[in-house]
């Protein structure tokens, strides 16, 4: 039963996951919460792990969630679930490729899907920032009413530094992630965060 739930949850994520890994995150998060697979904190641990390990985020997430929930065979169920929809769709689409891409209904659908995926990517930030940059939900009245202790100043500083490194200094994202992992380890080891 558990295996089927995992498989179905991740099959749905693969089927509706337009716009790549980041846009799929809110969907993964919502499924994880709906079926009680893990907490928000553990979900953002998973995301952090995905950023410093190779491979597609959705595959990493499926493996991680499946493993934590039902062990190695759970990991296999979830991973096959998330991979199967795009595998099957691709096999079908290859057969009538040109007709698919120039169909006005398909084109129209994508004028709607593309902006939605950007909204979903931004929504992913809210999930990650919760408990890391602020001590609670990101969108709430506390943002204005709570004192300075609501904000985690050092992680906010890390986020700002990461943006500066990636934009102004053009450092590759993976190097920035590893650098911030090292900085975080030192700060954590010395009890600052």
């Amino acid at each position: 039963m558990g295996y089927l739930t995992l498989f179905a949850a991740f099959f749905r994520i693969g089927l509706f996951g337009f716009g790549g890994g980041l846009a799929m995150l809110p969907m993964i998060y919502q499924s994880v919460q709906q079926f009680g697979f893990m907490s928000v904190t553990e979900f953002s641990d998973l995301l952090a792990l995905s950023q410093v390990t190779p491979g597609p985020i959705a595959v990493n997430a499926a493996t991680y969630v499946g493993l934590r929930f039902l062990g190695l065979s759970g990991a296999a169920s979830a991973t096959i679930g998330v991979v199967l929809p795009e595998f099957l769709i691709m096999l079908i689409v290859c057969r009538f490729l040109d007709r698919f891409r120039s169909n006005p209904l398909v084109e129209g659908a994508f004028t709607g899907i593309r902006p939605v995926t950007i909204g979903l990517i931004l929504a992913a930030i809210l999930y990650v920032a919760e408990g890391v940059l602020v001590n609670g939900p990101v969108i709430s009245a506390q943002l204005f009413t709570a004192g300075v202790e609501y904000y985690n100043l050092i992680p906010i500083l890390i986020a700002v530094c990461a943006v500066i490194l990636m934009t102004v200094l053009k450092v590759k994202p993976i190097r920035v992630m590893l650098l911030m992992a090292a900085a975080g380890a030192v700060l954590g080891g010395t009890g600052l965060i």
Partner: peptide, 23 residues
């Protein structure tokens, strides 16, 4: 382990920035 936990906080904070830039 506080070092590992700290590393996770560091990456998560940086990921917020990364996602924002990607969007």
């Amino acid at each position: 382990n506080p070092w590992i936990a700290g590393a996770f906080v560091g990456v998560k904070a940086a990921v917020c920035g990364l996602i924002l830039l990607s969007a």
